[in-house]
Design a protein around this nucleic acid. Sequence first.
DNA 1: GTCGAAATCCAAAGCGGTTTGAAAGCCGTC
DNA 2: GACGGCTTTCAAACCGCTTTGGATTTCGAC
Lengths: 339, 339
Amino acid sequence: MNLKELAERLKLSQTTVSRALNGYPEVSAKTRRRVEEMARALGYAPNQQARRLATGRSMSIGHVLPRSLHEMLNPVFMEFIAGAGETYAQRGYDMVIAIVDDGQEESAYQEIVARKKADGVMLHGPRVAETRHTLLKSLDLPFLVHGRIPGAEDATDWIDMNNRRAFERAAHLLLDLGHRRIAFLNGLEDMDFVARRKAGYMTALNDRGVELDPALMRNSAMTEPFGALSAREMLTAARPPTAFLVSSMITAIGVSRAISECGLRIGQDVSVITHDDALSFLPNSGEVPIFTCTRSSVRTAGIRAAEMLIKRLIDQPVEPISELLEADLILGQSTGPAG
Amino acid sequence: MNLKELAERLKLSQTTVSRALNGYPEVSAKTRRRVEEMARALGYAPNQQARRLATGRSMSIGHVLPRSLHEMLNPVFMEFIAGAGETYAQRGYDMVIAIVDDGQEESAYQEIVARKKADGVMLHGPRVAETRHTLLKSLDLPFLVHGRIPGAEDATDWIDMNNRRAFERAAHLLLDLGHRRIAFLNGLEDMDFVARRKAGYMTALNDRGVELDPALMRNSAMTEPFGALSAREMLTAARPPTAFLVSSMITAIGVSRAISECGLRIGQDVSVITHDDALSFLPNSGEVPIFTCTRSSVRTAGIRAAEMLIKRLIDQPVEPISELLEADLILGQSTGPAG
DNA sequence: GTCGAAATCCAAAGCGGTTTGAAAGCCGTC
DNA sequence: GACGGCTTTCAAACCGCTTTGGATTTCGAC
């Protein structure tokens, strides 16, 4: 069932039928209704390929993931995607995901443009030294950054969580509880969000005149063993920390494992605050959550991000658009006053 | 830069250029070389929309995820996708992912067919009472199941891990170590793989004449708290288990948390075996892995699945194709002889 | 009754490829 | 030198939709 057949059945031209279905004004309400009914009755749906070719728009949004990035952000990424995907579907966009070898990103983007695979792309996991945005600008491919690109905050569309403020507040909470030796397990140093979280932590400690101890600050991919190993080493060292600030819940789980294994009790002997991305398979939201945490739903971020990118594609606003989400600071069972 | 321009530059017809680039035999080697060079020089890449319209193939593969399924399988799903995505990219296919509300699946598939959005789809998370495959058959949309559909093993393409054997072996290992009270924390009961794992567990226990204790068997979404809560309750009950068989590493982490909190030592006082999907953010592969586990890389499964589905699309084999992957049983630190 | 604007509708030209059916070029053969 | 059989190339149709520019109809105003 295609437009032509449908038009013949209706004894109308393809033009009129097309216009009726696409909501153009130059068709009478009566005709429009007739067309719509017939289309429904015959189960007509316009062929997407044909429409794309004719309009020049692909009605899809691309996500290019270098493999290394994907591996680090896997669960978080998926949740973001899920949120964005919802919105895409509602708005009639498709989501195409390309997972490419590191270093193949550039050609992936070029191909998206050359072959008109997507109308816009989502840029994931911006680094401290980011370059992808300049490529995208030169390719004239619309994009939105999930996170922020240092130095390009005013020149790109982005949505981000206020990492700095969240971690500053979390650190302040620990300081308020009397903790002075606060370990900080953070993600890989070249990621922008990692730098911002570190800045928040440092600001808080500086505010209170607490000296930074490099021995208490570590960076790594945010795995469970990273948390367990680090915590174990730190807790058995000369001057152990009394609290941990942890960038990811998975790592925090590792930390709490180490704490138990050291014969200590979490929340009493040692405090832990983590960041909770509100991942569905890692719920931390009982009556009293296990972990005290900064929480910001990455899924919600995905939803907003998709809306913003689509807005960019359709309305083409002159000014860059951006949104900064604040994280909640949520009290759980993993924090208590310093011994 | 499109075909027409390229052909003009070469002083050839579009036909010849198209054929040269697509490897048709009726074009001389010399001409072909000339065309290829010019195409490369001018950075020509055929417009995908146009090609799709002309060929009727979309050169993309769909993944339709009902929201509930996505939430349960999130991390595993993402890893599978990553594997499949690699293969798609290599073979020139795009991956389009649709995340839809529960109950919208049917219309999502219909739309894929009506609008020619994808040439085939991957079917995720088959249930014990599965029906999607009959819909897909009637829509004549090629698909491959990740997992197996009970009763349709011989009528559908699928790739699966040998869940039953894996869990049977794991249970046997625990039995060999002298454990008799073996708790089993499994996924949601309506999933096919959950049923198979249960069958494996039950077979092993029956083999040794160990009676099943319903109090030791639980089903739930495989979250961390599910593991922690269940283990805590069981360990503090009248006749506590001495070992846990756990369907997911995330849940196993919860179990180990509960074990510690009960003042017990994992691997000594209580044994744990889990299934390890080899997720990148949950490494369990040090010199001696933390968890004794059955391991099967879901990413590898994704790679193979994509290859198989593409084979289906291209070669259209008459017989259904399938592949059963065996899991490794890997000894870690979490198992030891029953006290 | 005529005129002009507004409201409807239509034929045809793209969009950028693939593919069919036919023509042209080339070669050796009789 | 005409002919048959390959190889190589081409013009044109086609995929199914959107959209331009124009034609036709409607209708109130004069």
